[in-house]
Design a protein around this nucleic acid. Structure first.
Lengths: 142, 142
DNA sequence: TTAAATGCAAACGCTTTGCAATTGA
DNA sequence: TCAATTGCAAAGCGTTTGCATTTAA
């Protein structure tokens, strides 16, 4: 079932603004910010407002149609939930983002469930650290 | 070596404001926000400013004396690095925070290092999800 | 003495909100 | 029709910054 259908089914209206927000989320190659979604929306529908974007994202979050990830940029990024989950390694030296398969965190998820009864939402985790390239550079210097 | 000594050793001045920020960080039972540090500072040293708190925290971060954790509250919290590391499970239903031993994330850290050459900074990870109590409640309802 | 650090006020960037006008169902 | 949704403008919040003044070393 598409995002649009789910919205309608739950009794929410399918406005052009909402459809464009959903379109932007689907078109995005990677995680997208509210500002970027707004650009997409505004380019086709000039008299729009960024508050509509935020309100739509809020709604989609509640319906579990999008996930939010904090990459430590001072803003949050969004991703269509159905596109699948993955994790991110963020290098604190060069800023590079390495994508990680979801299954790498399965052992952790299992442990948390077994030992703490905690159902961890490990859908888009952002882990900071230092990538191999930057480690090598530092290693050479030292 | 204490935070104060490290500051001096690196050529930074030991101002009363900085000492009070460090004191607040040490006194804190758990992770503390800039605002809370400011309250501590301001109560003893009335004509202080929160920008001094932020500048001091920035400095302490650079020196790896404090770590920053984002609990998804729209603000960041600080913790003295030497007090040891641990992780946090945050229940999205009831807001409860469960502390986690550091060693639980060692397998993940090892995997990331071996498979990606990535040196992950797993010092204060915040993982959101749903705690056992809230899961039980939902289970009973369904 | 003097570079480093502070206080203040103003700005910043992202996000939220109140309210009147609009619109999908 | 009419409650849901939007646009707008303003505010809210945590954080940062420019600059004159103060201060630790």
């Amino acid at each position: 079932m598409s995002c649009q259908e789910i919205l309608q089914e739950k009794g929410h209206r399918l406005t052009p603004q909402r459809m464009l927000v959903i379109e932007a989320l689907h078109n995005a190659r990677k995680h997208i910010s509210a500002e970027e979604i707004y650009d997409h929306l505004h380019s086709r529908y000039p008299y729009t407002n960024i508050s509509t974007v935020y309100r739509t994202l809020e709604l989609l979050k509640e319906l579990n149609l999008v996930t939010e990830t904090n990459f430590g940029e001072g803003r949050v990024r969004y991703h269509v939930a159905e596109k699948g989950h993955h994790h991110h390694l963020i290098c604190r030296s060069c800023g590079k983002i390495i994508d990680l398969e979801e299954l790498l965190l399965h052992p952790l998820k299992d442990t948390l469930l077994q030992e703490y009864g905690f159902d961890a939402d490990l859908r888009h985790l952002a882990i900071s650290g230092e990538c191999s390239g930057c480690r090598r550079k530092k290693g050479n210097k030292a």
